Computed example of a mutant assay.
Amino acid sequence: MARQFPPLARRRARAMRQDATDAEAILWSYLRNRCLNGFKFRRQVPIGPYIADFVCHDRRLIVELDGFQHAGDEADLSRDRYLVSLGYRVLRFWNQEVYQSPDAVACHIVEVLEGRA
């Protein structure tokens, strides 16, 4: 059965997919079409009151990209606690990490997906 999200959340997620940051576009090129060792990811997925950047539902993994405006952000900690309470593991990367070393970011994600990290 398909998940039902409030229309506002679906519209906002769709708008966020169409207006991706450069870092999101770079990482999505690694995650889309099962390119990352066959794991399926979706992007800008509504989960409860939040929209997660990238989600692998099979492995209950959420990948978030953050700009420096998120440094020490209590809202991010609260959001992570909520997502963890639903059984997800949350990985956070700085946008700068994706710009400088996208292969390293992708490798770390694979390690987590395969239970090696």
Rank of each mutant, 00 (worst) to 15 (best):
Q18G: 05
Y30H: 14
Q100F: 03
R34N: 14
R79P: 03
E114H: 01
Q69L: 13
L65V: 06
F54N: 04
R11G: 00
R42T: 06
F68P: 11
R42H: 11
R32E: 07
L77T: 09
R59Y: 03
V55I: 03
D58K: 12
R12W: 00
M1E: 11
E114S: 09
Q18Y: 00
V98D: 12
A117Q: 13
Y50S: 05
I51Q: 03
L65P: 06
F5K: 05
R79V: 07
L83P: 02
Y50H: 12
Q96Y: 12
Y82S: 07
Q18A: 13
E24G: 06
T21D: 06
L36D: 09
Q44H: 09
R89T: 11
W94R: 08
V84W: 02
A9M: 10
D103C: 06
I26M: 10
D58N: 08
P46G: 01
V84Q: 14
F5S: 12
A52T: 01
H108N: 13
V110F: 01
D73H: 04
Y30A: 02
N33K: 15
S85G: 15
V55R: 01
E114K: 15
R10N: 01
L65C: 09
I109K: 08
D53A: 05
V110H: 01
A104P: 00
C35Y: 04
G72H: 02
A104R: 13
V45N: 09
E74L: 11
V84G: 02
D103H: 15
I26F: 05
V105I: 04
L65Q: 04
S85L: 06
A25C: 10
L31V: 05
A75H: 13
A52W: 03
L86A: 08
D76H: 02
P49Q: 04
L61Q: 11
V84R: 14
A9T: 00
E114Q: 15
N33S: 15
G67F: 10
N33A: 15
C35A: 12
Y88W: 06
T21A: 04
I26A: 04
D80I: 00
G38Q: 09
R11V: 00
H57M: 13
Y82T: 01
L8M: 10
R32W: 04
Y30R: 14
F54R: 07
D73L: 02
L8D: 13
V45M: 12
A106E: 06
L61P: 04
